[in-house]
Amino acid sequence: MSTIENTVEGDDGVNRRDFLHVAAAGFGAVGAAVAVWPFIDQMNPAADTLALASIEVDLSKIAVGEGVVVKWRGKPVFIRHRTAAEIEEAKAVDVGALVDKQTDAERVLPGKEEWLVVLGVCTHLGCVPLGTKTGDDRGEFGGWFCPCHGSHYDTSGRIRKGPAPRNLEVPGYAFASDTVLKIG
């Protein structure tokens, strides 16, 4: 057809029209990809969800050997006031033999070893492990036990047995005073 006859071809058989086609299609594809992004990103946490304030917890009422569950960002956080024996147990573990190798010291604040603060979310598929309430099944390692698929955590919240791949996560926290803990 006439348009084709009128096109100048280079030595390699590629002409200006081919270039224009590729350039236009490429430009369109990039534009479409850019337009899609807002529709994906709208699913990510919104500004108000992200802004969920940090919380403060009064520790003075938690006796040694006891624990509490508080809600932070819609998730449970376990705070346990560990006994000397529990701390010893957590320190005595051979780290090399763990699934997720972490010493107890890496999971608590220095000088505050008696306070263990972890997210109450099983790293397997997200159930809330048992073991915070007195009388709960604490599993074979005295920490927490997840009934969903049988994960056992120790007194440092580390995974010791079962399908969970990682230790219970330690959220960012600090001591506002000796008895007030600030999470987030």
Binding site: I40, M43, N44, P45, A46, T49, L52, R73, G74, K75, H124, L125, G126, C127, C148
Partner: peptide, 24 residues
């Protein structure tokens, strides 16, 4: 449990789960 399945995907898993939830 089912949305957490996606966290098993290497590297991007946790981001996908957050995306599915629209939160934490």
């Amino acid at each position: 449990v089912i949305t957490n399945l996606f966290s098993a995907i290497p590297v991007v898993g946790d981001h996908i789960v957050t995306l599915l939830w629209g939160g934490f």
